[in-house]
Design a protein around this nucleic acid. Structure first.
Lengths: 190, 190, 190, 190
DNA sequence: CATGAATGAGACTTCATTCAT
DNA sequence: CATGAATGAAGTCTCATTCAT
């Protein structure tokens, strides 16, 4: 699962990489993608050189941040899926993914703008989530809780879109709840 | 309301401004927001100076492009609203706005990243659409075609979000159609 | 004296030229030489084109402003010279020139920076002052009020330099007066 | 007093900074303040980026050049002051400052035009000279070689103004000498 | 392996000057 | 003759990336 990549990575190097990722996540999320690399390095307490040793380009850093978020989401989803009956698992997982997607769009776009094939470069880490969602969707459909004519692509698109919807309603929890009602109602058969 | 601005604008100036807007719309939409101003000027057949005379900053150009798109959408929406029964008018208009929203997110984000208060600077031109949507929504609710607990904010958020959903399914019209079914089903009472 | 140049100049054209000169004098003096030509034109109530019709380059405008000031100074000097005994006339005139030189340095330098041979382009209009100063100096020297070994070049240089000195003491009239004492004392024989 | 600033500065960085300062001094003095930064960088054998790393704005570079010149002047003045009797020390120092002031006005004005508070930003490095001049002046006055009613402000103004005077007589050493006689005579009591 | 100085292409913008209206 | 839109060279500054220390 968390297969070993390259060499084991020395202790301090690993610490630097982690700090960099933490800072980048924080900074990109709160201040946008245009923050200079140098600033991120400084905030992480390392030189730019170190940043570029770990992430050969800025895009690579961006991608790594995304991957990390996706992995976190996947972990959460795994817990939920393990739990209860199919329908509940599906809808709970939907909520989880959406709630954690905050700001994800900006990354995706920044990556795309940089000419990176997002689908390709994020393929592997996303696989876990994809697999889980496929299972959850199938289970919910088998249980008659979700329209049978929907596939994984529609589900993924809907997750992204609902995330975007929610971002517009950041300050109104009640409204967000109503949106969930609309979307979940729409997902059910008929 | 949509009153005349400043002076009538000389013939060639108007032509240049229009060309600039055309080119910018095209370029920003297809190649993203990071295209150099100089390239836009060249593509429009004018010098950079001319571009900056018409739009004092790049953001101003970006905003102008958005405004233009919104105005076009508003015009289309007006035609639909004039037409038929409330429910149909509402759903048709929803589709129209979503279909024309392609790529709009990127603009909004670019503007926001530049520190522009999008809501403020685009307020006026958006007002037309807002008003129409308010009417359409009210009409559809009165006709019992849409849940009564939804307000304009939710509608707007849903329009944005559905647009984002659709962008993920750019190449699959059938899937897009299924999304519309989901969302429209969800919007109906119960 | 005010010899006719070129054509007689139509009434409105003359008015424009005068307004332009007034505004330029005001603006250059208060806000420096880097003010855009367009702004000067606007302040004068004309288009840039008109400005450039009257003054083929910005330097030409700068030079014209200087000329005008010098002419004003010359006029004032003439009045004084006409008056009393040689020594008094000389020293009064010295004061007059210095007092009116405020900010003149900036112009001279701007012109020089633009590669204009100031001495050459201002030769003619300065001639009047030069002639007067030559006479005044000679008179004062004959009267034994000024060292005999000084020539016009030294006098001109001293006028410029004393102007610069005074600009440093803009806010201290008493100090300025002491400077005059120093310089005038120094000018007297022994 | 002339305490170390920030970090020790790496060897190559120090070399570049020095070269930049040398070139800038040379170029600004001979060709004026309007020389493009890029040209200065090229002449110093570095990229523009390096220039801007050392001096965040062009004004900063200008100011640094001035500071350097003032420091050089102060050093020379210190030597003189150490030497002989008060009167001689004073007048020699006056000459020194004036002779080294060549072109200094242009800098001051460029800085002022850029909205920099020259007095403030150059305060510290000037302090050394101020202190020395204060001492020299007091000494010369005590020795009865200079009018007692003059203060430091007048002296400084006179230094600037005499510099301006001398610049007009760049090519006539004999005339310059006569100016010194005039000014020094004027400075003596009576 | 870390550091941060150096690089230099390129971004945005200004402005003197020209020329169609 | 006046106007002001158009021009485009040039200027200052930023920032991802490289490389000497």
């Amino acid at each position: 699962m968390s297969g070993s990549r390259e060499r084991p990575l020395r202790a301090d190097a690993a610490r630097n990489r982690a700090k960099l990722l933490d800072v980048a996540t924080e900074v990109f999320t709160t201040r946008g993608v245009d923050v200079p690399t140098e600033e991120i390095a400084r905030a992480a307490g390392v030189g730019v050189g170190t940043l570029f040793r770990h992430f050969p380009t800025k895009e690579a850093l961006l991608a790594a941040v995304m991957v990390r978020r996706l992995e976190a989401i996947a972990a959460g989803a795994a817990d939920l899926a393990a739990g209860a009956e199919p329908a509940e698992a599906f809808f709970d997982c939907f909520r989880l993914v959406v709630d954690r997607s905050e700001g994800k769009n900006e990354f995706t776009q920044a990556l795309a703008a940089a000419g990176v094939d997002v689908h390709a470069s994020l393929q592997e880490p996303t696989t876990a989530i994809r697999a889980q969602l496929t299972d959850l969707l199938a289970g919910a459909q088998r249980a008659g809780a979700v329209r049978a004519d929907l596939g994984l692509p529609e589900l993924l698109a809907l997750l992204v879109g609902t995330g975007a919807t929610m971002e517009q309603l950041r300050d109104d929890p009640a409204a967000r709840e109503r949106i969930y009602e609309v979307v979940f109602d729409g997902l059910r058969p008929h």
